[in-house]
Amino acid sequence: MKTIRWGILGAGKIAGKFAGDLKQVADAELIAVGSRSQESADRFADEFGIKNRHAGYEALVSDPDVDVIYIATPHSFHYEHALLCLQHNKAVLCEKPFAMNAAQTRAMIAMAREKKVFLMEALWTKFHPHYIKMQEMIGQGLLGNIRSVLINFGFKPVAPIPARLFDPALGGGTLMDIGIYNVFMAMSILGAPDAIEATMTPAATGVDEQCAILFKYNNGAIAQLFSSFTSNLATEADIAGTEGRIRLTTRFFEPSATIEYYKQYADSREVIPVEKEAGFGYQYEARHVNDCLKRGLIESDVIPFADTLLLMETLDKIRSIAGIRYSSDEF
């Protein structure tokens, strides 16, 4: 079995979770980390037993021992960092949101195709057992024709509040940080909307501290999506059809969520068993990336470029309608 050698670009909280979960991937070795300073790179490397530790990202992408790099920096830097990796022929798993807008997304995809190097958006939920089971249930017709999707995701940040949440220079705001899960989930169930309505409440910095979205479909289906940094919400997803309903319990986007299935009558609750592994859940997407690399792919057959671009184009439309703007915007 060929071992895929991983590097991590960025040494923050999410990078640590990914590093811990990568230990559960049999054909993966975390061999390098790159951070803005030698001190932070060494600290991260010591914690996770990483051999190569680099001060600066140029050194990481130039490391000959690295096959693929997980980008774990704030999303305002994803475009720059992904291009840097691709230019050095390093395969990329880029944390969500993939970029700041569709224009950046197109450029990243074009570079991957030009260099013939693998690139994938790290929408980890798509690989989680509960998400796969939910899609199986929908595909089996257990809900009938889906008529509504209701999703909320919200929390009240506590001190010390991460700068990325409210800083427009870091792509702050609920839509890009957490609301993307609501949009992704609705689109994975109902497809791209035929019409969009959206509004937001601005924070003092101008980014959205709350965002409400309505997706309307020509077949009559509706999705209602809400994200907030002002209160702690249930963070659940409710998918209802003509024959039944599925409720994904709190933190619907993580493998810890439970699937509750209701037939036509509201009191017919059935908890659907799903096998879960230890860890946070990043190992599933890492296994898929390893498989793609071994097959010589440049794009995932689970999250193809077309899906990543459609999601970003939809986020652009939502932001345009709601009045959420960033300096990198071209729409």
Score class of each variant (00 low, 15 high):
residue 208 D to Y: 14
residue 217 Y to A: 13
residue 246 I to R: 04
residue 195 A to P: 03
residue 241 G to A: 11
residue 226 F to M: 09
residue 247 R to W: 01
residue 229 F to K: 05
residue 193 P to Y: 08
residue 216 K to W: 04
residue 228 S to C: 08
residue 200 M to V: 09
residue 194 D to L: 02
residue 255 P to N: 07
residue 231 S to T: 11
residue 209 E to Q: 11
residue 260 E to F: 01
residue 245 R to F: 08
residue 237 A to D: 10
residue 194 D to F: 04
residue 245 R to P: 03
residue 242 T to Y: 14
residue 255 P to G: 10
residue 205 T to K: 14
residue 249 T to Q: 07
residue 257 A to E: 10
residue 200 M to F: 13
residue 226 F to C: 07
residue 252 F to L: 10
residue 224 Q to A: 02
residue 259 I to S: 03
residue 250 T to E: 01
residue 254 E to M: 08
residue 252 F to Q: 06
residue 218 N to E: 11
residue 251 R to F: 01
residue 215 F to S: 05
residue 196 I to P: 00
residue 246 I to Y: 05
residue 197 E to K: 07
residue 229 F to A: 05
residue 244 G to L: 15
residue 188 S to N: 14
residue 218 N to F: 03
residue 210 Q to G: 12
residue 246 I to P: 06
residue 250 T to C: 01
residue 248 L to E: 04
residue 240 A to G: 09
residue 249 T to H: 07
residue 217 Y to R: 08
residue 206 G to A: 12
residue 206 G to E: 10
residue 257 A to K: 13
residue 215 F to K: 06
residue 255 P to F: 12
residue 189 I to A: 01
residue 247 R to K: 12
residue 215 F to Y: 07
residue 236 E to A: 15
residue 223 A to Q: 06
residue 238 D to C: 14
residue 251 R to T: 02
residue 224 Q to I: 02
residue 212 A to C: 12
residue 231 S to C: 03
residue 257 A to L: 13
residue 247 R to P: 03
residue 236 E to L: 08
residue 251 R to I: 00
residue 189 I to E: 02
residue 253 F to L: 00
residue 242 T to D: 10
residue 261 Y to F: 09
residue 208 D to M: 12
residue 208 D to V: 14
residue 233 L to H: 13
residue 216 K to T: 14
residue 254 E to C: 01
residue 189 I to W: 03
residue 261 Y to R: 00
residue 253 F to T: 00
residue 257 A to M: 12
residue 247 R to Q: 11
residue 260 E to A: 04
residue 212 A to K: 11
residue 228 S to L: 08
residue 246 I to C: 09
residue 240 A to T: 10
residue 239 I to Y: 06
residue 242 T to Q: 11
residue 251 R to P: 00
residue 221 A to G: 06
residue 253 F to V: 00
residue 206 G to W: 10
residue 238 D to N: 12
residue 243 E to S: 10
residue 212 A to N: 12
residue 199 T to K: 00
residue 195 A to R: 09
residue 232 N to Y: 07
residue 219 N to A: 06
residue 239 I to L: 10
residue 200 M to C: 12
residue 195 A to L: 09
residue 258 T to V: 10
residue 190 L to K: 07
residue 199 T to H: 01
